[in-house]
Design a protein around this nucleic acid. Structure first.
Lengths: 356, 356
DNA sequence: ACGCACTCCGTAAACGTTTACGACTGTATG
DNA sequence: CATACAGTCGTAAACGTTTACGGAGTGCGT
């Protein structure tokens, strides 16, 4: 005849009902805020649930309702992503969660193993019904995940454009604006030969970035020179290599635009090894800043982005596509070009006209 | 009279059974590799499942079996973590997944919102039965999560020691070894005043690091000077500030040990602003390297760690605590002190004895 | 002809929820 | 007094699996 132990979580709603001498139906209704339950009863149920530490089993609930109240953020743990090392996703995550929390939705991150096809991984995850909706990133030029999600009618939003599947919701960075701003700025400082780095992967981002760069140049009557597009990994190592290749060019450019700001570390290193001083002999502008850009020597001029705000926008756009939540987010755009703001530093703060 | 559309995923095992004209029990057994099913039948089932794109609904399965086949990796998306920006977790993730994949376990990352109590968050997640087991990190000095998981008998492993709950499985970095190695090395180069940076949070890591440092000093008959412990954030900004404080000390140290290698960026910057050259006027040794340390100027001497291997060890240790998988990982340690290897760079490559 | 072992498969219960439906009060309305 | 209605609550079905159990068929030895 031992007294009840309240240390472990309850066995389920049944036990809770039994403890209260009412039916499980009423308990469920009380917990879920359904209307037809007496105020006093509801109070008792909530109190007992709190006391016994009852939390609804998600499997049972999901099975019954056909939804999991979980949103998945798919990220690729590729070597490239790990090397970028800017905690990009963690930053976005906070913004996402601030939106989801209002609707009692949980966010989980789904890291696709590097040896698994992202498309297969995604299919597996949604088929298992672990999540109700998806946020995907690192969109490829043609991305089968987008076709799949569209056809399967899984709510989703992409961080990044793609050529796939007509009209899907996405947010992407304003490469056009960035390239235009950077080029215009450099030209005003007297530069004519402006190099750019781009990733060698199939990510759409690289294509868009280069296209924008090319158009920005042409708008200013500067011919596009393919040899000024340096294809390297987006890491410190890549930056080092990019500088190496820049130094080998017959007619050396006077400026370079980096697609990831961290590359500047390696780039600076290699330049200095050859006695070329960034911010004096070569202008450098970075992209997708993390605050660290301020602390490089010389400090990096760099396009900054608020990851939190980006996350909020992504979250809202996603919920707007889900019937159950659409009402809360009316009239938002289905596609957003996300603007970036230039934080001026010392790395391009000189007039090349004075040189030569 | 339209032909069947195979575009969307199947409605369930029932539909699949019906399509094959056999019972759902047999289908389930065939799919799960149970013994008592005819070879030919199994083949047909698997083929049909493939063709119709059937994947078992996880909710139904979890409900029946009481397990989810999902392991959770809890991470804190605190400002501090985002600032560290070393993609530490993504690195560990690959190692974990390589272990879990063998057992068809999936790994999800659970980012605890910064405005939610980690303990509450964890409770919510395991109560909802979203995961079978947990990997937690950023262990605090006293960490209620550990007591909770132990009492609730949820399999888990911690990345980081803690004073909480007697004997739980963990892996932690070899602070003792690192401090000893660094101090010994610096002393051999003639240093006597060696500073160190530590986080200001309640994370156990900071305490352990400082303790090890203190003991290493005392072992070499150097008195511990509290003013040489610089408490700053573990970011570039923190590095900048640390350098600032170092420069203000009446008797300036000749060496400094950084708890995060990224801090070196800000540190270098601040030093150079005052004409102090790292690697010549001040020795710098970093901790917990990312490869980027090699590309700083001067390159950072730094303790390196293989995140992948660490992930593998964590995964194995976790499975060893789970009854269903224990057999595959016999005789492993329940606690591991993870060694780090010093990658010598230029940042401490000078003999301070020659100075003064 | 019978029993037995073995292989294969169908039946149905169970997992923990939510929810449509109906039953039971008490009270207001005609 | 009959009826309607609102407020509560209990009952039972349903969600998609897995699995214990038993039955049907076959082959084989006696």
């Amino acid at each position: 005849m031992q007294t009840e132990t309240k240390s472990q979580p309850t066995k389920g709603i049944r036990q809770l009902a039994e403890h209260l001498n009412i039916s499980i139906g009423t308990v469920s209704r009380a917990l879920n805020g359904k209307p037809d339950v007496n105020q006093e009863t509801r109070r008792r149920v909530l109190a007992a649930a709190e006391e016994l530490g009852y939390v609804a089993n998600q499997s049972g609930r999901s099975l019954r309702q056909g939804e999991t109240k979980v949103i998945g953020l798919m990220i690729e743990s590729s070597k490239e992503t790990v090397e970028n090392a800017d905690n990009f996703f963690l930053g976005v995550t906070s913004g996402l969660q601030s939106v989801f929390a209002r609707h009692k939705l949980d966010l989980i991150m789904l890291p696709c193993p590097s040896d698994e096809d992202p498309h297969e991984y995604l299919k597996r995850m949604v088929a298992r019904r672990i999540v109700d909706a998806m946020i995907i990133s690192d969109t490829q030029r043609v991305d089968r995940r987008i076709d799949f999600l569209s056809r399967a009618k899984i709510p989703f939003v992409a961080l990044g454009r793609s050529l796939s599947a007509g009209n899907f919701p996405w947010i992407d960075l304003d490469f056009e604006g960035v390239a235009d701003h950077a080029v215009k700025r450099l030209i005003a400082l007297g530069h004519r030969r402006i190099a750019i780095t781009a990733p060698s992967s199939e990510a759409n981002l690289g294509y868009l970035f280069i296209d924008s760069y090319r158009r920005a140049l042409e708008r200013h009557d500067i011919p596009f020179d393919p040899s000024l597009v340096i294809r390297v990994r987006s890491s410190e190592q890549g930056g080092y290599q990019a500088a190496h290749e820049l130094l080998l060019l017959e007619e050396r450019p006077t400026a370079v635009i980096l697609i990831y700001e961290l590359m500047a570390i390696g780039l600076y290193r290699r330049l200095m090894e050859s006695g070329v001083m960034p911010g004096r002999d070569l202008a450098v502008i970075g992209f997708r800043d993390a605050p660290r850009a301020r602390f490089l020597q010389p400090s990096l001029s760099c396009f900054r982005i608020s990851l939190y705000d980006l996350g909020v926008a992504l979250g809202r756009m996603l919920l707007a596509t889900m019937p159950a939540y659409r009402q809360f987010y009316p009239g938002g755009d289905r596609n957003i070009i996300w603007p970036l703001e230039l934080m001026a530093g010392e790395s391009d703060a000189f007039d090349v006209g004075a040189m030569v």
